[in-house]
Design a protein around this nucleic acid. Structure first.
Lengths: 143, 143
DNA sequence: CAGTATCCGTAGGGATACTG
DNA sequence: CAGTATCCCTACGGATACTG
């Protein structure tokens, strides 16, 4: 049975909408495109800004824009998940790391990401089955 | 230490970009705004289309549009997480439920949502601290 | 009821240039 | 290096109307 009140949903644009129940906002920060990646990477070790940027955009297509990374980090910092350690040296050096709270979140996110990877085979099979069924249907429809 | 390969990230627009490593796509489907809510609701019990629509948009602001719910459900169905049971009666009746695979995903998502709720107090405190520190800084900056 | 098809607005997010 | 400030565009997602 349900764990408790999680089943109570809300909606509206995510962004800054004040009319949304507060926990949904945090959830969206954590599950956001870059939020997910930032948390997972920081679970490994602390990172500097540009270092993190490169780490995230490692594989395929271009990575995060500076703007988005900044924005993501600020949001997560404000929520108390990420710690920002800016040291007044030249050139500037800023290290980002997880807080205890952030680590808890990151572990859950990583678990989900890991699950996704582990189950990719099943997903791929489901997709092919779906696509073939669809094609058969559309074919019948057109003849 | 890291569980394995999850730390390897990718990027590019989520949508249908073929150049993104496949598991990231599934992760984005699962963590998408409506995907999260659909999975959590369906964990409770099966739902009919409109019923699900209403259940999701229960609390605050307006809920999901038909379009978005349809799209979300189709994506999740294609990924093999949701089962669609369309019965040829009049009026049409379609029930959505979780597959075994979907249930695994949904449980992780619900755990994350639950965690978020449980830790809201900490998050709120962090936010106030952040906002005050920021205001103090900006104040000093302007004087 | 359960969708599909269209039109359309907006803000999410990328690229670039500039600052401390 | 680590950001901020701007410009700009597209695709996410809402509203509406129509179909099976």
């Amino acid at each position: 049975m349900a764990v408790s009140t999680v089943g109570a949903a809300s909606a509206t644009r995510a962004g800054q909408d004040p009319a949304m129940c507060p926990y949904r906002l945090v959830l969206e920060h954590v599950t956001s495109r870059w939020g997910v990646l930032v948390l997972i990477e920081l679970l490994e070790r602390p990172y500097r800004f540009s270092e993190l940027r490169r780490a995230i955009g490692r594989v395929s297509g271009r990575g995060v824009s500076e703007k988005m990374l900044t924005q993501t980090l600020q949001t997560l910092e404000r929520d108390g998940l990420v710690h920002r350690d800016a040291r007044p040296v030249i050139p500037p050096r800023v290290d980002y790391s997880l807080t205890d709270l952030g680590r808890e979140a990151a572990e859950q996110v990583r678990a989900l990401a890991q699950w996704t990877q582990d189950r990719m085979a099943d997903v791929e099979r489901a997709r092919h089955a779906y696509d073939e069924a669809r094609q058969a249907r559309d074919g019948a429809h057109n003849r």
